[in-house]
Amino acid sequence: MPRFSVADHIFELAMGAMCRPVPVPRNFRPFLTAEQGEPLFRVVLDSEIEARTDEPLKVFYYDLQVGDCTLRIYPDEYRLTIRSAGEAELVCPFVEEGEVATYRTNLLAEGHKPNSVMFDHALCFAYSFATLPHKTLLIHSSVIMKEGRAVMCLGESGTGKSTHTRLWLENIEGTERLNDDGPVVRVLEDGSVRVYGSPWSGKGAVYRNESCPIAGYLRLSQAPENRISRLARIASFGALLPSTLPTLQKEERTLDQICSTLSEMIVAVPTYALACLPDAAAAELSYTTIFGLRSNE
């Protein structure tokens, strides 16, 4: 039963006796842990999932890059159907505080052969759902580190998040990428905010089990010239909200938790809007502004 620690939240993958053992996927290996104690949640991979015939409160359809999903929201659980190489279902009930959540999926049940997209998405959803009450959010972003502090580049798909972090790597000394798609942010007991590497990193494929405090959130948009400004609090909230998991924004309970964590995140760390070209000067501008090396007019 492999155990993982992502952003210091422990979870385990369980398989029944009938299931053939599968190797731990490459992107999860850096997060294997020998730490003992109760996990936050476990995912049973070869469960039989009974059909549910009552009407859900809400149904939501969305696309993956290679496949699509249907989320059904019930008063007591979320049910996610993922279609790519075949179809699999994931059932995530709500649990009482302190209880170990057990999520069930038929990803590896007899006759099912998920591809990595299905596996990654199911675990990403399960992780996000389980950690949401613990001031933890997966933020769609590309993250760079310099001098032990991180800058999180946000923006809609295609705005150049990865391009901007690559420009830092190429032009600013001593920078490294922490994650290129789905890092995890936590608000800690003392109100400080940290970003952690995760097994979800998109095309960038950086699976680092490391973390650091955040120097700034950087919302990117494309423009014919480079311009940066610091955002006021509500505008910061507006800049970050679209970068959280859309599936968890569909209903009051989970949206409440997203909002309260985001609220603490934007009070603790400044948010900037960067309208930019894909050039070295854009990286230079965001670096010098966020690290306080120039006056902020």
């Binding site: 609090r233 509500i234 909230f237 507006g238 009051e252 909002c259 934007i266």
Partner: peptide, 27 residues
């Protein structure tokens, strides 16, 4: 629509129906 406290301010978060780009935040 529920009034939420965000960083000490009161806002209404109005989600789009299918597309997340439709989200608006009213202070």
């Amino acid at each position: 629509y529920k009034v939420r406290k965000i960083a000490g301010e009161s806002v209404i978060v109005r989600m789009g129906t299918q597309s997340v780009n439709m989200t608006s935040i009213i202070s």
